[in-house]
Design a protein around this nucleic acid. Structure first.
Lengths: 204, 204
DNA sequence: GTCTATAGCCAGATAGAC
DNA sequence: GTCTATCTGGCTATAGAC
C-alpha cells in the first residue's frame, strides 16, 4: 500500500530531495535515488533527462521553500521589534524542521555561485531597500542606536541560521548530545530576538 | 625557479588543499590534484595511499589551522569586553584571508559528522567551561545582562563566520559586488564587537 | 622516487522490448 | 510509462619499467 499511485514524477523529486540534500550534488547517486523512489534508473532520465536537471529541480524547490520565509524579514509592516521577534521565532522553527535546507543551499551555492542568479529573481532587491529605509528612520528618530542597516540584516540572519550549519562542530565544542542541542535551539527562538533588541534599543 | 624542489609530499598537500577545499571530497578529482602539483596520479598514491587518506590529511590540516584561532575566545585572560573586541577582529581577519576553510570544514563535517571526534580531542571541553564560568561571574556581579553563556558563545561565532559561508547568497540579496562585500566584512571587524557588547553591557 | 600504461570498477545515460 | 540490459566514459588504484 503506502504511497502507491502518486505521481512518479513527484516520487522521484521526493527521493532526489533526500539524497541530494544529504549527499550533495557530487556525492549523490542516481541509483540511490531510484531505489528510494521505488523505481529504476531509466525512469529518472525519462522524467528529468539528466542528473544535472534533476538536481536543479531539487535546488529550485528548496530555494523556493526557503526564500519566502527569509523574505518575511524584509517584507512586513509590523513594528520593528515585533517584526524581529516574529521573524526569529518563525525562522528558527522553520530551520529546525528542515535543517538540511540551509546547509544544502549554502553548500551548493558555494560550489556554483552562478546558480543564484537563476533562482533569486529581483524579488529581494526591492524589499531590502524598504527594510533599510525603515531601519534608518528608526535610527534618526532615536528609537534605536546608530547602526548600519545592512550589518543588522546580516546579524539577524547569521544568528538564526549558523547554529544549524555548524551543529556537528558546536555540539562537540559545547558537549551537547542531539537532544540537548535541540533544546538549545528551542531556547534560541526567544534568546536571539532579545539579544538583537538589547543590542539596538536605546534605553530611556 | 619557483617552488622547484620543495618536498613532493608538500606540493601534493598544497595542491590537494586547493582542490578539496573548492570542490569538496566528492567533487575533487585526483587527476586535477596531480596536475596542480605538477606530477602524475601515481605519485599521489605513492605518498598517500588513497584519496580518502589524502583528504583526511587536508582536513586535519585545515582543522589544525582553524582550531587555535577559534580557541582563543575560550582561552584568554583579558578583560571580557577586550577579549570580544580582539577575538572578533582577529577571527574575521583570519577568515577573510582563508575564506575556504570554514565552508570546507562545515560542509565536510555535515557530510560525515564522525570526523570531528578524530580531530577535536578534548581540548575544547576544558576551555569552554572556563569561559562559561567567567561569563556567569560577570552576570552575577551585574556587569553584563543575565544571559546564557552557551548562547552567547554561539552568537559570537555565528556573527563572525556566517557571512563568509553565505557570501554568494548575501551578496546577491544586498546587491554587493565582490569589492563591496569585502568592504562590508572589513566593517564587521569593529561592528560585530560593538553589537555584541551593546547587547550584553549594562548601562550605569 | 618518478613515470606510463592499464586494470577494474562504477557512474550516468540510452536502446529497445513490453 | 515502465522495465532490463548495455554502452560509454571517467574514476581510483596498481603493476611494472626506469
Amino acid at each position: 500500500m503506502v504511497s502507491s499511485k502518486i505521481n512518479t514524477e513527484e516520487k522521484i523529486l521526493d527521493a532526489a530531495k533526500d539524497v541530494f540534500q544529504s549527499k550533495g550534488m557530487d556525492g549523490a547517486r542516481m541509483q540511490e535515488i531510484a531505489d528510494k523512489a521505488g523505481i529504476n534508473k531509466a525512469m529518472l532520465h525519462y522524467y528529468y533527462r539528466s542528473k544535472q536537471k534533476l538536481f536543479e529541480a531539487v535546488f529550485k524547490n528548496a530555494f523556493t521553500i526557503m526564500a519566502p520565509k527569509l523574505i518575511k524579514i524584509f517584507d512586513s509592516e509590523e513594528p520593528f521589534f515585533e517584526l524581529i521577534e516574529h521573524f526569529v521565532n518563525d525562522y528558527i522553527s522553520f530551520v529546525s524542521k528542515h535543517s538540511y535546507i540551509p546547509i544544502f543551499i549554502i553548500q551548493e551555492l558555494n560550489r556554483n555561485p552562478e546558480m543564484i542568479k537563476e533562482v533569486i529573481a529581483e524579488k529581494f532587491g526591492k524589499v531590502t531597500n524598504s527594510l533599510e529605509s525603515k531601519i534608518e528612520k528608526l535610527v534618526k528618530s532615536g528609537e534605536i542606536r546608530r547602526i548600519s542597516a545592512q550589518q543588522l540584516i546580516i546579524n539577524i540572519i547569521s544568528l538564526c541560521v549558523f547554529p544549524f550549519l555548524a551543529r556537528p562542530l558546536l555540539s562537540e565544542i559545547l558537549q551537547k548530545d542531539k537532544r540537548a542541542y535541540k533544546a538549545l535551539m528551542e531556547e534560541r527562538k526567544t534568546h536571539v530576538s532579545e539579544f538583537i533588541i538589547n543590542a539596538i534599543k536605546i534605553k530611556q
